[in-house]
Amino acid sequence: MGKNSLHVLKGINFTVSEGEMVSIMGSSGSGKSTLLNILGILDEADEGTYTLDGTLIKNLNEKVAARYRNKFLGFIFQSFNLINYKSALDNVAMPLYYQGVKRNIRVEKAMHYLEKVGLADWATHLPNELSGGQKQRVAIARALASDPKVLLADEPTGALDTKTSYEVMELIQGINDEGKTILIVTHEDDIAHMTKRIVNLKDGLIIDDSIVTQVRAKANSYV
């Protein structure tokens, strides 16, 4: 971190309602990841306000930020970010550990979410025994485990081939159908069009914000 700060976002004003599925697009350097980090309380804006589920997110200490992240948000990363010495089941159960849920209930809930992403049979496997698509599905199950208000996905398909990407998107669409609010950062047009609204960023400004017709991802079966 140098002394010179760089203003990446220069005035963003937008609202996401509950149940929306929004993709944030833009070339690299446009500020889309920064926006997502702010939304995810992983980073904080220098100016402006951010209200999440009626709560103003401002000047939080780490402890409160951690609690909000745990309560409100589920993260899905490009590089999956699973803990590699923990089994798929334990990875999914982790947010629940930090919620203070008892172990047996944790395992039960985690198993439920693994079933939901179609990986119940892989529960005891370590991340490095899983394919990329499977890892991302474990990460999705983990993001869902704490029953968050919003799912934030940073290039969720960036490390996956097209077929697997579509499978993952189909899963995410299914989750959205159940009412979860989802924000996806992507630079792939086809992925963006699988959401319901596209926000286009350029040089830290929103240049376009439009509702699109959702394209349903068609993958025939889960691997």
Binding site: K63, A66, N81, P95, S146
Partner: peptide, 12 residues
Amino acid sequence: GIRKAIGAEPWS
């Protein structure tokens, strides 16, 4: 970092 993103508090 992963643990923090998931909701771990610093002291934990």
